[in-house]
């Protein structure tokens, strides 16, 4: 178990954290609410969808700030990743071609599916039947192919 560090002994976060602190707090609150909510009446697998969504949104937020807008510094970005504000593995996928909009890591984990295939949400809209509306099993994604 890692040592519990007292707030007073902690190092301050890198420069620029105060700019994004409020937004990150909003995400944190949303996440807490989603986690503490009694699970919905529907199918069991849907219980975690909201958590996945919020995690995705928050990672996307950090990713956009660092890679797209260049609004935060490298030390701050590293600090955010280290402190669990964003999912580094997911961001690593977003940097790859074809995975720019990936919803969650579970959806490309082929070993966990019966036919060693990716999730339905990875299929481009163009290849789906007309008007077919899907929501993927693992995170409730409605389609995250790069071409959509």
């Amino acid at each position: 178990m890692p040592a519990i560090r007292h707030a007073s002994k902690r190092k301050p976060p890198p420069e620029g954290f105060s700019d994004i602190e409020d937004d990150l707090l909003i995400f944190a609150n949303k996440m807490k609410d989603a986690q503490n909510k009694p699970s919905p009446a529907g199918p069991k697998h849907q219980a975690q969808w909201e958590v996945f969504q919020i995690a995705h949104q928050r990672s996307r937020y950090v990713y956009d700030l660092y890679y797209k807008k260049e609004a935060i510094s490298k030390p701050l970005y590293d600090w955010l990743l280290k402190n669990g504000y964003a999912d580094a593995m997911l961001i690593a996928k977003w940097k790859k071609q074809g995975y720019e909009k990936l919803c969650c890591l579970r959806c490309i984990q082929t070993k966990e599916t019966n036919f060693n295939s990716t999730c339905i949400c990875r299929i481009p809209r163009a290849q789906m039947k007309e008007g077919q509306d899907i929501q993927c099993f693992s995170c409730g994604c409605r389609g995250c192919a790069s071409s959509d």
Partner: peptide, 8 residues
């Protein structure tokens, strides 16, 4: 806030 996400 220019740092806030669009969704917010």
């Amino acid at each position: 806030n220019p740092f806030s996400p669009w969704e917010k």
